[in-house]
């Protein structure tokens, strides 16, 4: 599934040669997509397609959308998919491109392939169990066993997954508890420089129960201190997926959007308008549900042992 290796051996006949050399990797990637679809089909999910160009992007403090002729390229299919849930579709998934402006690095490319799915009646713990079954099934189909190798470590995907609360991880690796006194700048910096690099790299690790201010679109649990029912999955140190018990409270959602827009304006970023169609759907009633967003290029990296996202994308910008 990694194309870069083929590129080096493709010889001198330019792009056509390079692309011909990618055939085996392309077939493996197609196999990955077939395995993903087979998994969701077997679980009674409906594959859907929602617009790639949207009037307003999902409001997130640190995700910037690419403008596209008076509209925007989607940063995620979340809001449209929730409108389908609100209309009664209980199990849906989508595979397609998403776009995030300025995100370019070893694990980031401004355009990337997203897998996103939602299930009514489920919470984030159910979603974690389902993600484990999905990854084991895809690895079995792609590699013959539910095991991936990263940086020399064999990682069993169907074994025990380490589930670590954000509080435990930060106390251990950064020396403070962000659920008690949240400091956004310190949280982001410590997450990138202390927590993520310190997570066990020889097995899947789910960081769960985020501080309420880092809830994004997750439901918060009213305990003390309150935590968001959200997890991020790391496999071999690679961040692979994000999930929520979805926020269904329209008033709370409207408040979070307004807060986020204010905060974006304060940071000098474009304050996107709230998606009113989505908020109306929430007001009509979104069932309790869980949703997972999983980076398919990152999954291809895991299955192929690629170190950078550029290696698994056929064309890069």
């Amino acid at each position: 599934m990694a194309f870069a290796g083929e590129e080096r051996t493709a010889g001198a006949d330019g792009e056509a040669g390079r692309l011909r050399g990618c055939r085996a990797a392309l077939e493996r990637r197609a196999g990955m997509l077939r395995a993903v679809r087979a998994f969701f089909d077997s679980q009674g999910y409906l594959e859907v397609e929602t617009p790639t160009r949207v009037p307003t992007p999902a409001l997130e403090l640190h995700i910037d959308a690419e403008p596209a002729g008076g509209a925007y390229l989607r940063t995620s299919p979340e809001l449209h998919m929730k409108r389908l849930l609100a209309a009664g579709y209980e199990r849906i998934y989508q595979i397609g491109p998403c776009f995030r402006r300025g995100e370019r690095g070893r694990h980031h490319h401004p355009e990337f392939a997203m897998l996103e799915w939602y299930r009514a009646g489920a919470n984030y713990r159910d979603a974690l169990a389902e993600t484990r079954a999905l990854l084991a099934a895809v690895a079995r189909a792609a590699l013959g066993e539910p095991v991936v190798t990263r940086h020399g470590a064999r990682i069993r995907l169907d074994g025990e997954w380490t589930v670590l609360t954000v509080r435990e991880a930060f106390r251990k690796l950064a020396g403070w508890d962000p659920t008690l006194a949240y400091d956004a700048d310190r949280f982001d910096l410590d997450m990138a420089t202390r927590v993520e690099p310190g997570l066990p790299a020889d097995r899947p690790v789910a960081l769960i129960d985020y501080p309420a201010p880092a809830a994004a679109l997750a439901r918060c649990r009213a305990e003390h201190p309150p935590v968001a029912e959200r997890w991020e999955l790391y496999v071999g140190g690679l961040e692979l997926a994000n999930a929520f018990s979805e926020l269904t409270d329209a008033a709370e959602q409207r408040r979070r959007f307004a807060e986020c827009a204010r905060e974006r304006a304060r940071l000098g970023k474009e304050a996107y308008a709230a998606d009113e169609e989505f908020l109306r759907a929430l007001e009509r009633g979104l069932p309790d549900c869980a949703g997972v967003a999983l980076g398919l290029d990152r999954l291809a990296m895991l299955l192929s042992g690629a170190e950078t996202i550029a290696e698994v994308r056929l064309f890069t910008e």
Partner: peptide
């Protein structure tokens, strides 16, 4: 460039001191 979860981007740099020749690491938001 690293960007954990939905947090802000962090730019991890290694920098060479052009006077002493020594190397340091810095992370910027």
């Amino acid at each position: 460039f690293v960007k954990p979860g939905k947090g802000q981007a962090v730019y991890n740099c290694k920098l060479k001191n052009l006077i002493s020749g020594g190397t340091i690491s810095r992370a910027y938001r």
